[in-house]
Write a protein that binds this DNA or RNA. Structure first.
Lengths: 346, 346
DNA sequence: CTGTTAGCGCTTTCAA
DNA sequence: TTGAAAGCGCTAACAG
């Protein structure tokens, strides 16, 4: 019913082995033979059987990219960059790799499930993006999984995620970025700043917050715990947290958000409260996603080179670029000062 | 070296077939036997070999989701909804399906490549999202591919894409949405409206534009071809097209954008040109992505139920919901009137 | 409810 | 440069 390699071989009057060699292009085959085979492939409209091929070769063309939230451009941009370096020629069979992105939704269980599924598929490589969850048990489970994947020959790369001994890592300097941002605000004269953090157990959350606190401490500014609110990485969280902060301290002059999306929610809450940005309250985000510049006023934020980092992670995953020395590279953010931050009122 | 099903069978003192049955859960097995097997699986840390399993069963647990631009939340939101209905228990082996998203980048070649790759993997289902490219040759090639996939037992579902005889389709009523939007503007008194369209060959572009023109015609408003500019579905395109429209006709009183992202760019261009929204120029978008409400002023747009449609497409792809009668369902958009549109000046 | 027995379609030594 | 043959690890009849 479905066309097999044997059918192609028969038609091209060669052995199955030869067809396989032509298709994989990793073995010398006479030009005339190759052409005959290729013609037969075309005529029969043959499509290689991936599972069979993967079974025999003990490795597949699958490359998995794990993201926490596929609806968030932060991940979409990275995933796109990673994929752009993976898809296209270069794979084993037929010269193509199947770069696929898997959405964990930020759930540790789903992360593990996807890792297992990719392991089951004998994936050629796996790239994990974004912050990790800091639960000890989960971290250990992920580590164990990554180790097994690596042992089975799967290349494991972390992108925008803290280093792990089992993998090559391109890490974002979230702490440094957070520090720069708060230093900027302190430099403008702010002393009472609200901080809207992400989910508690996420490394990204912790590092950005730590940077914020480092800056406060270095400047001798009091770190009032009531001015920090935990939330999620979405707009709504920014909106609600801002109202809460305003309730706790109506005199605050700035709001630092865990990321740009949260910052947008913060802006909306401030506007709805009749406060002007930045005259009454300054707002800062993080990531510099494309929409940050379209906020009104444009958002002061920390630009993370998502595309560059993703592309590099993709190349490393494909073995087309050397991993950084020690297996770890830190990618820094760049402070983008725009209209949403200014001197405090009064 | 790597643990196989036979190892598990030996350890559990049963036949390989029994282990397989336990793992696939699609066959009666005595509870005590099952437990013994499960224990052995655990003890040996066994992971099923996906390719082997797919080869033997002639189908895999892979479900592919094709998107035009993974960095665009329009697709991210749909993909997330689709995945949420697919991942999790219910699959064949180990009860899990591998829902993966593939980023075509809007390229017809990559679309075809991914389809071939998924065909090669014997994917259980494929969901194609977003507008199609209207090139005859490409359309034919895609049709042929979809037919082959369907013949091979892969379920094919289109989500937010025009219907095709080879598949079940949930189509967005882009034409109707476009019409509503322009009717709304005409109702406010606008007569000179600029239109920023998407890429020429995309069905989404054409349908939305057709809706716009239908509304103009129905109201007897002149459709000046100079007021329509083609572009891409991104912010920059909206920015540049708006400047161009302003150059062509400084008296225009409204700009209708192909989607929200483009509308954001249009807003930026208007602001940079010293024009107020909506006092000087009204702006409208399409899709109602999360950030639309955060624009200043909030964007008037057409809300598309991306999450609902995606979830439904996912269920249909899994065979957990009946396809709509005739294989086609039209999903309507809802006009969201917000602050970015108002009566024309003067 | 469980075991036996053939393959699934391809890759890859090993020979020629 | 090509062919023959032996599996890769699993599933699915078919018996029992």
């Amino acid at each position: 019913m479905t066309v097999t390699l044997a059918d192609v071989a028969a038609r091209a009057q060669v052995s199955p082995a030869t067809v396989s060699r032509v298709l994989n292009g990793n073995y010398p085959v006479a030009t005339s033979t190759r052409e005959r085979v290729l013609r037969a492939v075309d005529e029969l409209d043959y499509v290689l059987n991936g599972p069979a091929s993967a079974l025999a070769a003990a490795t597949s063309d699958l490359v998995g990219i794990l993201v926490n939230d596929i609806a968030d451009p932060f991940f979409g941009i990275m995933a796109s960059a990673i994929q752009s370096e993976i898809g296209g020629p270069g794979g084993r069979a037929g010269g193509e790799r199947l770069a696929v992105v898997c959405n964990t939704g930020g759930s540790p269980e789903r992360e593990l499930t996807y890792l297992t599924l990719l392991q089951r598929q004998r994936a050629a490589a796996v790239v994990l993006t974004g912050g990790a969850v800091e639960d000890t048990a989960h971290a250990a489970a992920v580590s164990a999984k990554l180790r097994k994947l690596a042992e089975a020959g799967t290349r494991v790369v972390l992108c925008g995620r803290p280093p792990a001994p089992e993998a090559v890592a391109l890490t974002f300097d979230n702490r440094g970025g957070g520090r720069q941002l708060t230093e900027h605000l302190i430099g403008l004269g702010h002393r009472r700043m609200g901080y809207i953090a992400g989910p508690e157990e996420r490394t990204t959350t912790r590092h950005r917050l730590e940077g914020h606190r480092e800056a406060l401490e270095a400047a001798g500014v009091e770190d009032d715990p009531r001015l920090t609110v935990l939330g999620r990485y979405d707009r709504r969280s920014g909106y609600e947290a801002t109202l809460e902060l305003l309730r706790r301290d109506p005199s605050l002059t700035a709001v630092v958000a865990a990321n740009d999306t949260v910052a947008l929610g913060a802006c909306a809450a401030l506007r709805d409260s009749g406060l002007r940005i930045p005259e009454d309250v300054s707002v800062a985000g993080f990531d510099d996603l494309p929409f940050a510049i379209d906020a009104v006023p444009a958002l002061t934020t920390v630009r993370l080179p998502l595309t560059e980092a993703g592309a590099r992670a993709g190349r490393i995953a494909m073995g087309r670029e050397e991993p950084p020395p020690g297996g770890i590279a830190t990618v820094r953010g760049e402070l983008m000062v725009r209209g949403s931050t200014g001197a405090p009122r009064g």
